[in-house]
């Protein structure tokens, strides 16, 4: 992947920066430049997403795309953040068989892709279960 692709998305991937339409009171993530129903983006204001939420739904990826094959099986979930915004991301540090819908999660900064041994490292957000206790894998 060319490095400009991930660089361009740093604000949203690194800091969960969204936009909120002042007219419709609606949050957009990834951020949009133009609000639906408007001809420009003047009603869109920067909005910081919270970093806690619950698992809205999830699936376990057993047969992944080639760049994620060493991570299988892994979980991709839809997370409902505490402000009601839903985001999609990997759920890390978890046993897929014990994960539950409604489980509390925290959003953490993680490596998302490595692009082989020589490419740029892509960072971003993943959810991790906000649970206590000890497990064994």
């Amino acid at each position: 992947m060319f490095p400009s692709r991930t660089w361009r998305e740093n604000p949203q991937r690194y800091r969960l920066e969204a936009v909120k339409c002042a007219k419709h009171n609606k949050v957009f993530f990834p951020p949009r430049r133009v609000s639906p129903g408007s001809l420009d983006g003047s009603s869109l204001k920067p909005y910081q997403l919270p970093n806690e939420g619950t698992i809205y739904t999830f699936t376990t990826i057993e047969v992944p795309p080639s760049q994620f094959k060493d991570s299988a099986p892994y979980v991709v979930g839809m997370i409902e953040l505490t402000d009601g915004t839903k985001i999609t991301c990997q759920v890390a540090d978890c046993d897929p068989s014990t994960l539950k819908i409604g489980q509390k999660v925290k959003i953490e900064f993680r490596r998302v892709q490595t692009h082989g041994e020589h490419g740029v490292l892509s960072y971003g957000y993943k959810a991790v279960p906000a649970i206590q206790g000890v497990t064994t894998v």
Binding site: D70, S71, A92, D93, E108, F109, R110, R111, V112, L121, Y123, K126
Partner: peptide
């Protein structure tokens, strides 16, 4: 560290 954890990711969380 898991494969998606490195010095940078740990440092970002500590810094936050």
């Amino acid at each position: 560290p898991a494969p998606d954890v490195d010095t940078v990711t740990l440092s970002v969380e500590a810094a936050r």
